[in-house]
Design a protein around this nucleic acid. Structure first.
Lengths: 149, 149, 149, 149
DNA sequence: TTTT
DNA sequence: TTTT
């Protein structure tokens, strides 16, 4: 195999995640994420924003729909995937997305606790690096042997 | 700012890099890179290949054109950038590329030393993590104080 | 070469950075950084904190001393380095440190603007991914051609 | 939580992995990994090697013991962990290790197929990014729905 | 269009 | 103790 496809982003959500359900009741969440960098143009600082389409699947999508909201700062780890599709005029187009494998909420609690779909009691759990695996893991933790690794 | 946009790829070049020159004699190299992953579908191992467009600028482009060839395994670090452009029919399209900031040749020398544009004498230099910065750095290393950091 | 040594941390500073000067007036900053993860032990959520020693050199050290303070959340990219030294009893010891190559302040402005050594006017500059290279770069930007890459 | 602790290494094994078993029959593999970088000192290219202690647990340890051998080039992703222990003279010491979460074999098959504990039939499986999760996953893949994500 |  |  010999291959690695990894993306690491820290940025702000441009919108609340949109949650859909595929056949088999598989959940999919997606949202735009902004990262920005500043550079010099003719001696002036210019900020350039890059917009990424982030997609999450299954348990991770559910957690995202619950805790991620427009404006929040988030750390995302995932991989690149380019989809091919036909638009409404029948033109073949390509869209590159970041398929997230885990995410972490960043910033202080106070930054987001007055939010509409604010996390309450089980917030800690979600913040604890809401990984696809970990989400599964915490749901059936019979196998947990208490070792921190 | 508070933002991170980072891509890490290990994959094989699908073609030799294509080197172009912009106004101001700025060099730009680009090439397709394949990463692949295997997964189960109906009990069978299926391989799925993802193709990435990698772009390099200036000194890094020159080093890439010299040392990277079709088929080579390479580690690439960069950032995502989505360009908007009009295709030949005047349709607005978007293309997401990985703008590389550094690369490392992987695999043994013997894997590629019979290659057409094989690296010779100054190979070490290029292999020594051909970073944009380092390339500049080694060109005017007056400031080098010999400390390993 | 064929080698990569990369560390990515997001965590909180345990103390203000300590700034020292080596011969040749080279600045070195260092500070402890905490990352934490939660795991299940006997059905209870336990948090485990990992402490890292982060070291920065030259321009990056100066920026760190100016903008990083105890408690701040920061994204750090760097590499691992294990130093060998003799402690006060003459015992040979090893210390593994993260030599930072860049950092980003995370969290909102309001989180830290009442801070003692608060950033003021040139804050943007520091927040704009305070990379060793970029710090040098913004100091002599004659070569800047205004292109965002 | 708001925390990330990630290490990415590409380097060569200094020794074959050493496999031990803890109580509960939990397997642990560990080995030294070398990364190296070159820099200028007084106009000469100097290579400096950094040695890392890599530790793997459970299924990942078993896969490592089977496929990783001295000299092999490998991509490793994991996290930093500093252990405290007493050496034989009763002196408290600290050791920082990389607890691997996944690894990928790099380089061509021919580089290692004459090796002593050479992978044979099930090689593909191991090479397919031998992640802790994936290893578990491929062992009980009843839940696999054939979607590539 | 790469590689195993 | 690896590799180029």
């Amino acid at each position: 195999m010999s291959s690695v496809n990894k993306v690491i982003l820290v940025g702000h959500l441009g919108k609340d995640p949109e949650l859909r359900y595929l056949e088999g009741n598989i959940s999919v969440a997606s949202f735009p994420l902004a990262t920005s960098e500043t550079f010099n143009r003719d001696g002036k600082r210019v900020e350039q924003t890059e917009w990424h389409t982030v997609v999450m699947w299954r348990g991770l999508a559910d957690v995202a729909a619950k805790y991620l909201t427009k404006g929040r700062l988030v750390y995302i780890e995932g991989r690149l995937r380019t989809r091919s599709y036909e638009d409404r005029e029948g033109i073949r187009r390509f869209a590159t997305e970041i398929v997230a494998e885990s995410f972490n909420l960043l910033g202080r609690r106070s930054d987001f606790e007055n939010n509409a779909n604010s996390p309450v009691a089980s917030d800690k759990k979600a913040q604890a690096q809401a990984q696809e695996q970990q989400v599964d893991f915490t749901e059936n933790n019979d196998e947990d042997d208490g070792l921190p690794f």
